[in-house]
Design a protein around this nucleic acid. Structure first.
Lengths: 101, 101
DNA sequence: TTGACATATTAACAAATTATAATATGATAA
DNA sequence: TTATCATATTATAATTTGTTAATATGTCAA
């Protein structure tokens, strides 16, 4: 029995939005997305830029991929990630305007 | 020894932004803020609108108050909450545009 | 092939969050 | 006053998230 049946339309939308917002609600994950909003990056580049361990970056990226915030493609030895979601891009830009004036 | 010393400026900004974003990253808390973005509401009103327990609503509001997303004032028996933070209002409006088209 | 580099996955644990229940405080009306 | 309604606080169990370490996989160059 899915929970969605009983949710008000507004709560449903908040539920959906919150699932995406959750992924931005972390300093380094947000930073990853900021960098990706400028263009695709390899895992190693993100690692250096954000100062996280390789494992942690990979886990973050996997999670963001599973929620469709990012996609990836292989380029030789490297795997490059990018934002392929108009909503996320809009959101990052809005956050930038609001928090980095 | 504070951690801030060693943070890059970008990470510092992400850190700050993420602290605020965290509070939106929950279905009912987001819903509370959506309703508050239309004007002040009492705790009881929010409780009914969001379908949360009284205790939970109070806890959410207390947390959002402690991070300066909302303020409150007493009006007789009731306590009314409102958004008193330009950034938050902008953010809620941006989210609305992006997620409720 | 093998070695080296790049990335992913898994397990395990610590820390934070969410939700519920119980109780406390504060205001008003009778 | 006291009863009642509105809200806040506290304690705590359940769950989720964050982090590290160890190991696995995949690709290329020698």
């Amino acid at each position: 029995m899915s929970k969605a049946q009983t949710l008000s339309p507004l709560l449903e939308q908040c539920d959906l939005a919150a699932r995406t917002i959750k992924l931005l609600a972390h300093p380094q994950r947000l930073m990853i997305l900021c960098y990706l909003s400028e263009g695709s990056k390899s895992v190693g580049e993100l690692q250096r830029l954000c100062g996280c361990s390789q494992s942690l970056i990979s886990q973050f990226l996997a999670r963001m991929k599973s929620e469709d915030l990012v996609t990836h493609y292989r380029e030789g030895k490297f795997v490059r990630y990018e934002i392929r979601n108009r909503q996320i891009l809009q959101l990052i830009r809005a956050l930038h305007k609001i928090f980095c004036p």
